[in-house]
């Protein structure tokens, strides 16, 4: 099992963000995490990396309980993040942003050159400051950086946010799709349900602080009332 959450709950002070979230994601799966704005998707993603509020429950990453580990150890265990807002370092160049991911991680299939081959647009701009990139290029850089950690599990948080529809489609369905075909496990926390479900055959829906749906995307798409009530689609 790549990732297992068991009765995971998160609180900011007395405010409960979500509770009793249990799920399992197998190696090579593509899973969409859906929910309205403010449903707790980002908090759940942060919780996976121990970057958010205090937690109770267990998070197992490749069999190891990691919920109390510092973030860098969780990352080394095999989970990479493409954060909301991209989380690029504006005072660093494109290639410095990428090389940062290679410093403390084991060598693996991904190299700087392979990233530039996969995303040629980044190669052209390797010496530019990351703040000079276009929205699409920034997202590719964030993905490239996450890949360079060699982690088998890629978590993307609001990857389509701020992108033109065509660009979001290209990045999520084509690029991430290709990576998943090559064996990467993908957890896609996404506001744009229609887009996420085109990539992911399995969906999770977070609503009212609970996981209200966990099943095949087709079943979710067939359930009009659930879509309407929790996703507003």
């Amino acid at each position: 099992m790549m990732l297992e959450l068991d009765k995971l709950s998160a609180h900011y002070g007395a405010v409960e963000v979500f509770s009793d979230v249990s799920l399992r994601i197998g190696a090579g799966e593509k899973v969409a995490l859906l929910g309205r704005n403010g449903a707790g998707k980002t908090t759940l993603v942060q919780a996976l990396f121990n970057l958010g509020p205090r937690l109770s429950g267990t998070i197992r990453l490749q069999g190891e309980a990691v919920q109390d580990w510092p973030t860098h150890r969780i990352a080394r265990r095999g989970m990479a993040l493409v954060p909301q807002g991209r989380g690029l370092f504006p005072t660093l160049s494109v290639s410095e942003n990428l090389r940062l991911a290679t410093l403390r991680q084991p060598r693996g299939a991904w190299t700087l050159e392979k990233i530039f081959e996969t995303f040629p647009r980044l190669a052209e701009r390797r010496h530019a400051s990351s703040s000079a990139l276009s929205g699409g290029e920034r997202q590719l850089l964030a993905i490239g950086r996450a890949l360079l950690t060699q982690a088998p599990l890629l978590v993307l948080d609001e990857a389509s946010e701020g992108l033109a529809p065509m660009m979001a489609e290209e990045i999520i369905v084509q690029h991430v799709g290709k990576l998943a075909e090559a064996g990467l496990t993908v957890l896609l926390a996404e506001q744009n349900a229609a887009l996420a479900l085109r990539l992911c055959p399995r969906a999770l829906v977070l609503a009212g602080r609970r996981l209200v749906f966990d099943g095949p995307s087709e079943a979710l798409l067939a359930d009009r009332s659930l879509l309407q009530e929790h996703l507003g689609v």
Partner: peptide, 10 residues
Amino acid sequence: GIVETLGIDT
């Protein structure tokens, strides 16, 4: 936080 997600012990 993002630096930590790259496996670096800050």
